[in-house]
Amino acid sequence: MRDANKTIKGTMRNVPIMEIKNIVLRFGGVVAIQDISFDIFEGEIRAIIGPNGAGKSSMLNVINGFYHPQDGEVWFRGKKRAAMKPYQIAHQGIARTFQNIALFKGMTALDNIMTGRFTHMRKGIWSQIIWRGAASQEEYENREIVEKVIDFLEIQHIRKTPVGALPYGLQKRVELGRALAAEPQLLLLDEPMAGMNVEEKEDMSRYILDVNSEFGTTVALIEHDMGVVMDISDRVVVMDYGKKIGDGSPDEVRNNQAVIDAYLGISEK
């Protein structure tokens, strides 16, 4: 849908930032992901869709290291990735949000987003003990970037509110802010619009599109709202029962018989 736009800006280069190759993930006898391969291009918005239990979230968990697949490879920036812990993957520049909000409830919105800068802060414990000088300097530099994120997401008014006290839609936005503050190369969004009303969905779609076009961040998202998916994504992967049943532009996927069958069922005749 947005290909025309993108080629004008030249952000889409068809260079894969991430390649998923023949991933197999089993939990005991249950096969959650069965030999799935796809790639994510630099600068695109890539959607992963599928009915419930298709293995979409498991796929994201494989990408950011919560699950270690029994078989298959993950290639990031042209290099095969060794088995890593989630925090190591964060340091590589992959950030994500969660399906059920995973904010730090006891901290303010500002602190939550500041925590997103963790991978960019390098001052050691001794300079933090002294604080004045190096550590505070670093803190304020990062605060500046965080304030940009806060401006971008229009959440200035809740900066110092503990996030536990915020309404759902704003919590989702703070969580996106935390992921954005890390300035990721690849941003994974697990159902960013779940449980939102139409306006909130529109806002969130706008933020995702803006992140993608302004900062050039590659986005991979899971979403159930087909309207949103078809509108904002460049390419779509469709999963069903742990298998890939479709891959391509929104239009191709929409007309794919296997996808239609998975979503609507196959008639008896």
Binding site: K85, P86, Y87, T115, A135, A182
Partner: peptide
């Protein structure tokens, strides 16, 4: 000084939601 900065936030992140703490790079 420790609790207002990076280390303090990493502790609070572990306290509030250890999974999310890992995802943003806290070991």
């Amino acid at each position: 000084n420790l609790t207002r900065g990076k280390i303090g936030r990493s502790w609070m992140a572990i306290r509030d939601m250890d999974i999310a703490a890992e995802i943003i790079g806290v070991n």
